[in-house]
Design a protein around this nucleic acid. Sequence first.
DNA 1: TTGTAAGCGTTATCAT
DNA 2: ATGATAACGCTTACAA
Lengths: 340, 340
Amino acid sequence: MTSPPTRRKRATVHDVAVEAGVSRGTVSRVVNGERYVSAEAREAIEAAIEKVGYVPNTAARNLVMQRTQAVGFVVHEPHSLFVDDPNIGNILLGANEALSQADHQLVCLVVDSERDTDRITRYLSGGFVDGVIMVSARQNDPITRVIERLGLPATFVGHPPDLRELPFVGIDNRSASADITGELIGAGRRHIGMIAAALDRDSGSDRLAGFRDALGDRFDERLVVEVPLYSHQDGFAGTSELLRREPDIDGVFAASDAVAAGALEALRAAGRSVPEDVSVVGFDDSAWALRCHPPLTTVHQPAAAVGQRAAEVLLAQLRGETISPVGSFVPTSIVRRGSV
Amino acid sequence: MTSPPTRRKRATVHDVAVEAGVSRGTVSRVVNGERYVSAEAREAIEAAIEKVGYVPNTAARNLVMQRTQAVGFVVHEPHSLFVDDPNIGNILLGANEALSQADHQLVCLVVDSERDTDRITRYLSGGFVDGVIMVSARQNDPITRVIERLGLPATFVGHPPDLRELPFVGIDNRSASADITGELIGAGRRHIGMIAAALDRDSGSDRLAGFRDALGDRFDERLVVEVPLYSHQDGFAGTSELLRREPDIDGVFAASDAVAAGALEALRAAGRSVPEDVSVVGFDDSAWALRCHPPLTTVHQPAAAVGQRAAEVLLAQLRGETISPVGSFVPTSIVRRGSV
DNA sequence: TTGTAAGCGTTATCAT
DNA sequence: ATGATAACGCTTACAA
């Protein structure tokens, strides 16, 4: 004897049709703003809609139209990063903007556990979205596999190495890293270390590669400390380790600004001053960069523009266009502040 | 050899049924793991599913089942805040966790413009979700109106003043603010100002009310500077203004940690030292609190727990339970660091 | 245990 | 300009 939930029954086109004394077809035409409806019919129907409180059921519409006007934005990151990393938020906002223009709904899907992976997989397969923007896919990512299997239109932000021919947009992490390392070299630094993070992702490994490129012969792998995440905490730990290994370093390339912020703290704790004793550069030009003392010289990453471009590429696919080239790069730039 | 062509047509129950030589009903039973199917039928059907690559179309299932197993998480905030405020991310993660347990998909919807409002309104009306978790609704929010009109199950985080009987969860901003202000008083501060933000939201106005409560007779409205957002920038501007109005303040209650971080900078710029000359307290215990120099004494806000509770309350509604009381508070605590 | 058939709320294709 | 009617892909009584 439980009391029934107070869910009022939704009005349908049928109800509206009856109320207005017309057929369902005519109602549908009015709702979708088509031509060929008489003024009087339109009027009666609009009144009826108002009266019965009709709202179209999109699930039904989707079923027959075979599209949803929604696209998934899949964030596959550990908690801490989604919360910490302003880039993701900006990519999301840029994508939302472009999709919004095209009258598509962005739905953001957070993958946070194995369990989530399964559910999202079902969600994507279930016809809830017309396509997906995939942020920071892992190598051998089950979600990527599903996308391929379904032939679901998708654009990736970044390009995991095992991605076949799926379109992606990103920045050129490798050459940008070489450039920013050049700042260190240009400042006369000779013992340059790197705190390399997230090597399981293309961004992480490309940044390391760029660092290596810039150093050439002088590259010394003992000066590279690998840490798992682009986090403040890992930056601190990694830099402490670096100082232990090689106390006389005079330059540090941190794989992200958050990492650089941690590096700065570790250096301060070790009694080094920046930029007098050691120069530090980061990557991202996130809020961290300005918050640091001294503010960071870093790579400006136009996150919103990346999101926007990703959305545009996806929309093009939805229109049935073939994307070529599959990869599209948004240009970065160096911003010089006080840390070198 | 490989099948490169683009969008393959999706297999349906019908295709599986034909392939397996059974009826659609039986296929449906297997897919939904019901009893009463013979081992041989099950086997044939499973093989057929694999062969034709069948994935259920959830839109169709939703239509007939009248539910989606998805809930909307609506974030109604300006860009900057969604990106800056770690609380929202944690609320989202807490909610996702609870929903995930209950096998529901969280769909995050970002409202960022008038245009977005319209689209989200349609999305919510469209039967894409069974319910919604609404974060930081505005007073007289069009989305709130739609939720009420639809009778869509919803839980609010915080409670805008014009919310009727809809369930909400939150923290007791007012008494927590009184408590944290007490820290300033307890430290012997006599000229205490407040940087009050976001007064159009319950959190903002309640924090101001708590400040007033704690001060009682000594409350002086000239010491309150109102700023629009919980942002670092507004904290800086507001505090500069406060110093202009009343140069001899010795205590500041900033409406959030981000605001407090800005306050700290403004004080430093004005040559005041913290906590020697003036004590500062914040609210949220976000990442900002630890990042500041000195670290902030602040109110710890269990954001993830709030998200989790919000999800639980929503799930209860989905089960048809009646929520009472409508409001549910998650306890906060004070964390003392160096800024007092 | 399995098949049949009636919807679920729309849109789309016909005649009219 | 409008009204039947057939899909869309699925679940679910009810029959068999």
